[in-house]
């Protein structure tokens, strides 16, 4: 089974009539959906790198000179997909009543002693990419480390030519930041 690119484009944009959406939902998944979806996204982004995996709104894992990096549709690059991209973003933290009340006025406002809201912005275009609400001091959450090779190998049945080791490399970044502090004479 297969759907037209126009129908899929409308589906992703939320412009398909509900009856049609319901029909798609009730049928077995179309086998070529992922490839069609990526085709549509690839036509929309202004850069040439191949999209390996969409990571939600704005962000994609793309192939660039043999590496797999996270890239915003505006073109900003965040680094290897195995490192939490948030570490390369801009952060704004709502950690007092005044800043929290801009979003949660009145009795909806959480206790700033117990909770902070972290907003992550793309340094390239200023899009709000992610929000997390955590206790102060909590490590920045790594939302997802997708196993891209397993997906291409086992789900799409066509492995990517150069497989990469799957491991969380986020702490390599923080370790380096720690070394920078030592050198600065902490």
């Amino acid at each position: 089974m297969s759907y037209s690119k126009d129908d899929l484009r409308d589906l992703f944009d939320g412009n398909l009539p509900w009856e049609k959406v319901k029909e798609i939902m009730s049928k077995p998944k179309d086998g070529d959906r992922f490839d069609r979806y990526v085709e549509i996204l690839q036509e929309r982004v202004p850069w040439p790198e191949r999209i390996l995996l969409p990571m939600g709104e704005h962000l994609y894992v793309v192939e660039k000179s043999g590496d797999r990096i996270v890239k915003c549709d505006c073109g900003h690059e965040f680094g290897d997909w195995r490192q939490n991209w948030k570490l390369s973003a801009l952060i704004f933290v709502r950690d007092d009543t005044e800043k929290l009340e801009e979003i949660y006025p009145g009795f909806r406002c959480p206790d700033p002693n117990l909770c902070e809201v972290r907003e992550f912005y793309c340094p390239g275009c200023g899009s709000l990419l992610k929000v997390e609400s955590v206790p102060a001091g909590y490590p920045i959450i790594f939302d997802a480390l997708p196993d891209i090779d397993a997906f291409y190998r086992e789900w799409l049945g066509r492995p990517l030519p150069e497989e990469k080791e799957l491991k969380d490399m986020t702490y390599e970044v923080t370790r380096e930041w720690g070394r920078d502090l030592q050198q600065a004479g902490e």
Binding site: L90, F92, E119
Partner: peptide
């Protein structure tokens, strides 16, 4: 968007400050 780019800080700077805390 401009407001966000102005008030957002690089995570590394935030990390150094928050690590002390």
């Amino acid at each position: 968007r401009k407001e966000r780019l102005a008030r957002g800080m690089p995570v590394k700077d935030w990390w150094q400050k928050s690590r002390q805390r």
